[in-house]
Every structure is written in structure tokens, then in C-alpha cells.
């Protein structure tokens, strides 16, 4: 099913004990685009993310990915369909080396992980590919360093390399530049631009500079609802959006 939209949600609702975190969100993510989800704190961005990646079940509504209804799938199932997420805080395997981290991604794609009787040496065949991925994100020289010892920006790069190991069709990034210094933000933005080629990216991002540089399309959420949608120029001049951001941040 090669539709125009890779991911479509209709009437997506998530309630937490009477509180509606996500309220009838209709989202359409165009294949091959970079789509950003923005909004003030508490707008429900991360909840939408968790619904899409099945870390939370939706209360109501439907999620269609590549023509398949994935509303009731499990997180591992959607991952196997090629939809891979990252997390808000950098998410690596801390006491594994950079190489081993990326290898976990490759291993997931290649399968055979249930074979507990096989020697660990069988994984060495993945090292070439792992090094290539590390090279792509500029981490080649850190291959044997434990992830926990890498600086923050490099941890995020490692996370992206691990995600890329699965060759995802749809990449979901939860605040990829959060907590980063200015130079790291620049490097990660460039990196994202490169890895987005040939894929679809849906990202939650606070840094509007990054959004402006990367996103083809932006959806603004407020209090669980879609407030506005369009490209950067449209969204940043939308009066509702300006009000939602207290009149200032949208111009930053």
C-alpha cells in the first residue's frame, strides 16, 4: 500500500482518569517528509508519541500505518513494521560499548536473538555494519567506549545510529535536541537532515529554530487538540499559535 500518507490517525483520544490528554487528534504524516509536532508544555505531544508507538493504548480512535490498522498492536510489533522511536531523555544501553549499542539494533533486524545456545561470536559478523553506522554519525573512534562515558550530544548521535540500524521507514524522534548546547544542536540538526533522506520523520521538538530548519510540515498541539497545521511560515504567523506561546516564543 503505497499511499501518500504513511501514518494517519483519526479521532485519537487518550484519557487519564477523567483528564483528556489527547483530544480527537487527526494527524496525517506525508511519506518522505519531516513532520514536526510542537506545542507548549503539557500539550500532549509525548502522549501522542506514546500512542503512536503503542507504549500507551488509545482510549478511542484509530491509527493507520502504511495502510494497516495498528491501533491494537504491541510496541515490538510496530517496531518490526519499520516504525522506530527515540525517547525524550537520551536512551542508550549505558554499560555497553557504542559498537554493542548499534549492534543491538542490527541484531533486532537480523533476528535469531532467541537462540540462547549459540556462541556470542556469531554477532561479530555484524561489526562491519555497526562500524559503518557509527561512522555515519561521527562516532567511529568511540566504538569501544561505554555509552555511559560519552558526552550528551554523542549519546544522542549513538541513539540515532542504533535506530538507523533497523533501517526504519518511519522515524519518531522525541525532542532530539533537548538538553543540548548550541554546537551540539547544530550538529544533530545536520545529522537529522542527512538521515531523513529516503525516510519519513515525525519529531516532537521544542527548539523552534531546529523545527524551522528541518520540518516540511508542522502540527501545533494545545491542550491535547490540534491548534494549527501548516509549514513554518504559516504556523509562525498564525495568531492562535502566537497566543499559545505567550506571544513571544514563536518568533524566537
Amino acid at each position: 500500500m503505497e499511499g501518500e500518507y504513511i501514518l494517519v490517525t483519526s479521532g485519537l483520544v487518550r484519557e487519564f482518569k477523567g483528564f483528556v490528554a489527547v483530544d480527537h487528534v487527526d494527524l496525517r504524516v506525508r511519506r518522505g517528509s519531516i513532520h514536526a509536532l510542537i506545542g507548549p508544555n503539557g500539550a500532549g505531544k509525548t502522549t501522542v508519541f506514546n500512542l503512536l508507538t503503542k507504549f500507551l493504548p488509545p482510549t478511542r480512535g484509530q491509527i493507520i500505518y502504511n495502510g494497516n490498522d495498528i491501533t491494537r498492536h504491541s510496541p515490538a510489533q510496530v517496531a518490526k513494521l519499520g516504525m522506530i522511536r527515540s525517547f525524550q531523555i537520551s536512551s542508550v544501553f549505558p554499560h555497553m560499548t557504542a559498537l554493542e549499542n548499534v549492534r543491538m539494533g542490527l541484531q533486532a533486524r537480523h533476528g535469531g536473538s532467541l537462540r540462547f545456545w549459540r556462541s556470542g561470536k556469531t554477532l561479530h559478523s555484524l561489526h562491519g555494519q555497526a562500524l559503518e553506522l557509527l561512522r555515519a554519525v561521527g562516532l567511529e573512534e568511540f566504538a569501544d567506549v561505554a555509552a555511559v562515558e560519552l558526552p550528551y550530544g554523542r549519546k544522542r548521535a549513538l541513539e540515532i545510529a542504533t535506530t538507523l540500524a533497523l533501517d526504519p521507514e518511519l522515524l519518531l524522534l522525541d525532542e532530539p535536541t533537548q538538553g543540548m548546547g548550541a554546537e551540539d544542536v547544530g550538529a544533530i540538526t545536520e545529522l537529522l537532515k542527512r538521515v531523513a533522506v529516503g525516510r519519513t520523520v515525525l519529531m516532537v521538538e521544542h527548539n523552534l529554530g531546529v523545527v524551522g530548519r528541518l520540518a516540511d510540515r508542522i502540527t501545533v498541539l494545545q491542550r491535547g487538540r490540534v491548534l494549527a497545521e501548516g509549514n513554518y511560515a504559516e504556523v509562525s504567523t498564525n495568531p492562535d499559535v502566537i497566543t499559545a506561546y505567550m506571544g513571544g516564543a514563536a518568533h524566537a
Binding site: F55, I84, S91, R118
Partner: peptide, 20 residues
């Protein structure tokens, strides 16, 4: 084994292992 590697990954960061 490769299986043991996955166990290690789960121990280190379960949500991440799941998302992979």
C-alpha cells in the same frame, strides 16, 4: 549468546529494547 545480549540490553534499558 545473542540471546544473552538481548537480556543485557533489557536489563540496561527496557523501554529502549522494546522500541527496537
Amino acid at each position: 549468546s545473542p540471546f544473552g545480549q538481548v537480556l543485557k540490553a533489557i536489563r540496561e534499558n527496557e523501554p529502549r529494547a522494546l522500541s527496537l
